[in-house]
Simulated scan of single mutants.
Amino acid sequence: MSVVSVAVPRKGRPLEAVVERFARGAPDAVIESADDIVSTLRYEKAVTKGEAAPEGSVYERLERYSDPDSAHAPEFTLLRDSRPGMPRRIVFDSLTLPLGDHTVRLVGREEPFRALRKHEFALGFDSADLVLEEVVGLSDEPLRELSEVNDRIDPLDTDVRVVEGLDDTVHHTLLATPDTCAEGPLDRDFLRGYEGPLCISPRYERLVEAVVGTGALEGVEFVYPGDDDREEEAHIADAGAGVYLTVTGSTARDHGLVVGERLFPSETVLLENAAESGPESEAVVDALFAAPTA
C-alpha cells in the first residue's frame, strides 16, 4: 500500500488542529503521538519566548524527543528563527500513521499552501487566512464564509481549492472605541460610512479588503500596530477602529473597545490540488471527514 503524503504546518494552532483530527477515533499509539506533538511544541514555544527554562541544549532535547523504535512516533527538526537574537526552535517534521485502510505521512512545511501551489503535494492543511491573502479575487461584495472562497479563486491562478475546515475557529472581528461607533451598529455598513484610520496587521491588508468589500474602504486608511510590546487591541484603541482576531472579545473590552461584527472565520482548512489528486488522496479525504463511529 502506498503512503499518501500530506503537507501540514510545523507548529502552532493549525498543527494542533490537524493532529487532533487525525487522532479522532485512532489507535492509542496515534493518540499518544498527537498528545506528544502538542505538548512538546507548546513547551518549546515557551522556551523560545523565555517563559520556560530549557532542560538541556536544543540538540539534547531534539534527541530526547526522538524514538526510532516506534512506528508511529513523531519526528522533530530544528528551524532557525529569523528574528534577531532568537535561537533555533524545535518544530514538527513528520509522522506516519494509519487512517482507516490507508497510511498517511504528515510532512511539516513552513508554508503548506504554497507547497500545494507548487504541486509538491495533493493534500495539505493551512490557515484559511493565507488563501485569502494570496489568491482570492477582490470585489465590492464582501466575502463572508469559507464556502464562498473557492468561487473567488481564479482557476488560471492555482489548482488548489479549499475542501473543508477543521472548526478550530477564531474570527476576524471589527473593533472600535465607543466614540468612533457612537451612531450605529459596528458592522460592514459602519465601514461604508467611516473615514479614518483602521488598525490591522500588515499581512492582512488583502484579507480585510476581501472580507469587507473594496467599496467599504473608501476613505479608510490602513494603519499598523507599533513596535512596542502592547497588545494589538491597545493599538486599535489608539486608532479608533480596527480588525483583529478574537475568540470571546474579552481582551478587546478590557481596552475599552466595542466588539462588532465577526467578519470572517479564521480556521485551519484542508486544501487539495486537483491536478495532483487521485483515488488514494480522495480516499484519505473521505476517511478524514467521515462521521466518527459510536
Rank of each mutant, 00 (worst) to 15 (best):
V211D: 00
Y224R: 11
A237R: 15
A210N: 05
F222N: 06
D228R: 10
E221I: 09
R230Q: 12
F222P: 14
V223C: 13
A210Y: 04
Y224H: 12
A237I: 04
D227W: 14
D238V: 08
L207S: 06
V208E: 00
E218T: 15
H235L: 03
R206G: 03
V208K: 02
R230C: 13
V220W: 04
A210P: 11
V212S: 01
V212A: 00
G226E: 15
A210K: 08
R206E: 03
G219N: 06
L217M: 05
R206L: 07
R230S: 09
F222I: 10
V212M: 01
H235T: 05
Y224E: 02
E231R: 14
G213D: 04
E205S: 10
D228G: 08
P225C: 11
E233P: 00
T214M: 04
D238N: 13
G213M: 12
G213L: 01
V220L: 03
A237G: 10
V220A: 02
V220F: 00
G226F: 03
V212D: 02
E233S: 08
A216R: 09
E233A: 12
A210S: 15
E205F: 04
E209W: 02
E205W: 07
V208Q: 01
E231H: 14
E233G: 00
D238L: 13
F222G: 09
V220T: 09
R206Q: 08
Y224I: 05
E218D: 12
A216N: 04
R230T: 14
I236S: 15
D227I: 07
E233Q: 10
G226K: 09
G219I: 08
E218Q: 12
D227Q: 15
D229V: 05
A210R: 06
